[in-house]
């Protein structure tokens, strides 16, 4: 786990309002398209080999007829104390000074230790080279590399959009502000359940929302210090 060094770089974080989220999965498809996430087909899917950077968890509570359902979008939590990082023998997964848990595809040798150590099971392994039936590959996002067999992958908080947003702020000679960076999932969400921004900036929306009495983090007691904050239902 990384030594935390003081930095004036932005610290990227996400807030998800579970009271707004309807479980519609628009974010899932948006992510797949933006990040060239492969579809594996029925046969491989049956073996549990789908690639998912974000998933919607669903919980049934109670018994008929008093059933209630809860949804929760789960992606890489970009933990400050990420359990996946120290177990990588080749330093393919590491922490950036902007608080991102990054993955270097061409360094990854596919031990899958990181996936085993991730308590949120958000890492997907490429068990084989994916076939993109032509011309489906024309829809690839040229800003995002396509992963091949033997490589681990996961949510990057749309790092390509972060880089573009930072470049724009730099061009304009200012710090990044809300709205500079919008990951694909956040942008498409029909109910506006997701927020993204620099949590180190106290005026940012995510910084404010993270102080809400409804704020929680997933499996917080593991000490992973996630960078994704969930707002529960209720007042």
């Amino acid at each position: 786990m990384s030594e935390t060094t003081p930095t004036n770089k932005p610290q990227w974080a996400m807030v998800i309002d579970l009271d707004r989220c309807t479980g519609c999965e628009a974010c899932v498809v948006a992510c797949n398209v933006e990040n060239n996430v492969a579809t594996v087909g029925a046969e491989e899917a049956a073996k549990g080999r789908t690639i998912n950077w974000i998933r919607i968890e669903r919980y049934f509570e109670g018994e008929y007829p008093d059933v209630r359902v809860k949804f929760r979008p789960v992606m890489c939590q970009h933990c400050e104390e990420a359990p996946c990082e120290p177990v990588c023998p080749v330093y393919a997964t590491y922490h950036t000074d902007e608080g991102l848990n990054a993955q270097v595809y061409n360094r990854c040798v596919g031990t899958r230790y990181c996936a085993n150590n991730c308590p949120y099971t958000v890492r997907s392994f490429n068990f084989f080279d994916h076939v993109w039936d032509a011309p489906l590959q024309k829809a690839w996002n040229p800003e995002v590399s396509v992963r091949s067999r033997g490589v681990m992958e996961k949510c990057t908080f749309c790092v390509q959009r972060i880089k573009a947003g930072e470049a724009k702020a730099k061009d304009e000679n200012r710090d990044v502000k809300d709205g500079d960076v919008t990951p694909a999932c956040v942008q498409t969400c029909p109910t506006k359940a997701m927020y993204f921004g620099n949590i180190a900036d106290p005026t940012s929306e995510v910084a404010k929302l993270s102080k809400s009495s409804r704020a929680t983090k997933l499996l917080e007691d593991l000490g992973t210090k996630p960078k994704v904050i969930y707002l529960n239902e209720g007042e």
Binding site: C24, E25, A26, V29, V33, T188, P190
Partner: peptide, 8 residues
């Protein structure tokens, strides 16, 4: 915003 279908 867009829904899952629209995104596909």
């Amino acid at each position: 915003a867009l829904c899952a279908r629209g995104q596909a």
